[in-house]
Computed example of a mutant assay.
Amino acid sequence: MIGFIELIRASGFAADVRQVKLVRHKGDDLDMDQLRNEGWFETYQCFQSKPVFDGCTHIVSVIGEDATASRFVGIYEVQGSTTASPALLPEHCPYTQWGTESRVFYTLKKCPGFEDLEDRVVIDWGKGALAWHQWLTDRTIMEIRPRGRVLAPFRDFLRVHLSFEDLGNLATQPTAHKDWVAALSAVGGIYLIVDSMTGAQYVGSATGSGGIWQRWCDYAKTGHGGNLRLHELCREDIARARHFRFSILETFSRSLARDEAIRIESFFKQKLGTRVFGLNAN
């Protein structure tokens, strides 16, 4: 079976692997895919607490998933480094702590030509999962996902945490995400939408033949799904929906009576205070 180095070589990577590091990003306090969706991932990667990229001509970046699975997201040329400072942060960057002068700033340039592999190739990081940067040696390719695939495999309803961009990718690329479509279509449930700008929450419910999948497709199309206060936010700022994040609080049969679903929904609204402090109008 083809190895990872052979695969990127076939796509045009010609650097000496002895000067290349493989870097696995899996922050405990930051969601890497959310950083990418919001445009801050590459900034995050440039600022390091130690000179970990010294001696490298390139880094190969992956995002850690379950266990040792690691999803390829790009190759970057290391063009230089300097002492970090707040002045090196892009305008409006919310992560001001990255620019402290005790850190190192690397100038990294993304290499073109690997777009077809991004978010599709999943490699096995191996036993040294705690060592998040290593000199590049070959890795086993665990999976090559379908074109258009963005999300990791569906695992569990309570672990669902999707950005609005993720939701759009699901809705526009259902064939590439058959596992997600099947899971979300199979159940009704109570879901939570959080506005990541303010922390305000909205609780909703989904029943009927399409389950949660059909209801969330409405949000993917409009951003607000017809909900009053979400609609008001989107009317004030057409791009506001990109800050919404979607999760599932409880699942039940799609055939559950609507009155019972509303009763459960009301319980969660009361429990989370979303009528008084959140985005539920009723």
Results as ranks from 00 to 15, higher is better:
I141V: 15
L170W: 01
D33V: 05
W98P: 10
H231S: 15
T222V: 06
A10V: 06
E6C: 06
W98C: 11
Y44K: 10
A200T: 09
C46F: 03
A171M: 06
Q45K: 05
S11Y: 15
L230F: 02
D33P: 00
N282A: 08
P153N: 08
D138K: 06
T68P: 03
H224C: 11
T82M: 13
T107D: 09
S205H: 04
C93M: 01
T107G: 00
K109H: 13
M142D: 06
V276L: 13
Y76N: 03
K26P: 03
I193G: 05
S185D: 00
E250T: 03
D156K: 09
I262G: 01
R229I: 14
Q201S: 14
P112D: 15
A69V: 03
L249R: 10
R254C: 00
D16Y: 07
R9C: 11
G27L: 04
R71K: 14
E77Q: 15
D31H: 07
D124W: 00
G99I: 10
A87M: 12
I212Q: 00
R145D: 09
S209K: 02
R18V: 01
F53C: 09
I123F: 04
W132V: 10
T222G: 02
Y191L: 09
F157E: 03
F154H: 02
F246M: 06
G148T: 09
F246C: 03
R155W: 02
R149L: 02
T207D: 00
N280Y: 05
I75F: 00
V181S: 01
P112S: 15
A129M: 12
Y76S: 05
D179C: 11
G55Y: 06
L167A: 03
M32P: 07
K26M: 08
R229Y: 08
W125G: 14
K221L: 07
A67I: 10
A206G: 02
G189S: 13
M32T: 11
E77Y: 01
Y76G: 02
F41I: 14
A10T: 12
K21N: 05
A220Y: 02
L249Y: 01
L233P: 09
V160S: 01
F157Y: 14
E236Q: 15
G189D: 08
E115Q: 15
A84L: 11
D31M: 02
Y44I: 06
D33N: 05
V73P: 02
P86C: 01
C46Q: 15
P90D: 10
A206V: 00
Q97M: 08
P153E: 04
R263Y: 08
R240G: 04
L279F: 13
L167D: 10
